[in-house]
Write a protein that binds this DNA or RNA. Structure first.
Length: 154
DNA sequence: GCCAACGTTGGC
DNA sequence: GCCAACGTTGGC
């Protein structure tokens, strides 16, 4: 069954436009166990993704992506001593971090800002609305996903 | 840049 | 296993 997610990215590091340019990208560098578990255990090929810009002038959802990897893969950056995400405790035999690949889907006609999301009663209960919610990959209810798509002009 | 909220670490 | 200290996230 197709599931729905919100994935945060800081646009200074990797923006929705960067995803558009690349087409697909490995969602590496995540070092939070809860987010890892979602990628490793819960996300499936074809799942829909709200691509969310965080830590920027106008936080919000810019468009849609899809999970494009059939299986979770070990995050290669954990093995790379030169990487910021290097994890000395990870080995090839026992990788610690897993990630999925995501693919560009389509942009919103208009971004749906966090302020828009907070101002919409139909979106009550969305995790991203909760203050102090830092989880960078969040499950989203279908009705919320669909509502945000409509707010984005799709 | 501030700071509240949160996750992780490490001493005990 | 508790919990204080610390580092990070992320909106504002």
């Amino acid at each position: 069954m197709v599931r729905f997610w919100l994935m945060k990215s800081e646009p200074d590091t990797f923006s929705f436009d960067d995803l558009k340019t690349k087409g697909v990208t490995l969602w590496d560098g995540v070092r939070n166990y809860q987010a890892r578990n979602l990628m490793r255990d819960e996300m499936n090929e074809g799942d829909r993704v709200l691509f969310y810009h965080s830590s920027c002038a106008e936080p919000g959802v810019r468009g849609l992506a899809r999970v494009s990897s059939r299986e979770p893969v070990p995050d290669p950056t954990q093995f790379d001593p030169a990487s910021d995400y290097h994890d000395p405790k990870a080995t090839n035999e026992a990788p610690r971090w897993f990630c999925v690949e995501i693919a560009f889907d389509r942009p919103f006609k208009t971004p749906v800002t966090l302020a828009d999301i907070k101002g919409c009663h139909a979106l009550d209960g969305m995790l991203v609305r909760k203050r102090g919610q830092r989880l960078s990959i969040q499950p989203v209810e279908k009705k919320h996903f669909e509502r945000i798509c409509r707010m984005g002009g799709l």
